[in-house]
């Protein structure tokens, strides 16, 4: 099952994952998950970290994989939930909460769009033995939708709404994801950026900046937006 990973190495992980499981992961591996995955983003982070809302007891023993995502989902009249597709959202925006989030949640996997910075990996991920998985595309929403077995629980639906609630989802062969970071804090995205940089410098050779500059503008093409 799952997309042919071509020359890329494919790994299945059971969630909750152990530190030992993650030792096998190298950046650029294609990863599929089995077990329970939950969504948490700015709404949950603010309430739990800043306002003291409580996570379930033994939370990390239920799941330690946090997906930066909101599902395409609906609560039907009988109180049941339907999830069609799932797609990651850009993770760099959540950097400021991560140190505390790892502490209170025990997360070892963060899933989302586009990875985080090398600094985030060194400061927040490496000390707690966590890695980052990026969604593919973005996004393979329908493929991820197929990997959902059922919605196990939805916390704070009424308080936060569909997009920001915490969805706890039972998954099987849930993927594909690509490992952006490993336990040492290496980053696939930053490695690729570095490879492309030389060609970009050549493309710009001989061009001149526009007549009207903009505040904070730089000619350093290795700089990133995030």
């Amino acid at each position: 099952m799952g997309t042919d990973s071509g020359t890329l190495k494919k790994i299945n992980l059971n969630v909750p994952v152990t530190l030992d499981d993650l030792k096998a992961i190298e950046i650029g591996n294609v990863v599929y998950l089995n077990g329970v995955v939950y969504t948490a983003r700015e709404g949950v982070y603010q309430r739990v970290i800043e306002d003291g809302w409580k996570l379930p007891d033994d939370f990390a023993s239920i799941s330690n994989a946090n997906f930066h995502c909101s599902p395409a989902a609906v609560r039907d009249a009988d109180g049941s939930y339907r999830v069609g597709a799932m797609t990651g959202t850009a993770s760099f925006r959540f950097s400021k909460w991560l140190a505390r989030w790892f502490e209170v949640s025990g997360a070892r996997i963060i899933i989302g769009k586009g990875g985080m910075t090398f600094d985030d990996y060194k400061k927040y991920f490496v000390p707690v033995g966590a890695i980052y998985l990026t969604t593919v595309g973005y996004g393979t929403g329908a493929l991820l939708g197929r990997g959902i077995k059922k919605v196990r629980d939805v916390r704070w639906y009424d308080e936060l709404g569909i997009a920001q609630a915490m969805w706890m989802i039972e998954v099987e062969n849930f993927g594909p994801f690509i490992a952006d970071s490993d336990l040492a804090g290496n980053s696939l995205f930053e490695r690729e950026n570095a490879k492309i940089k030389g060609n970009i410098d050549k493309l710009y050779e001989g061009t001149k900046p526009p007549a009207l500059h903009r505040y904070g503008e730089t000619d350093d093409r290795s700089e990133e937006l995030i």
Partner: peptide, 15 residues
């Protein structure tokens, strides 16, 4: 993913 979306009649992208 496009094939899966069409077969299952589910959204291609959840965003």
């Amino acid at each position: 993913n496009y094939e899966a979306a069409k077969e299952d009649r589910r959204a291609m992208c959840a965003d």
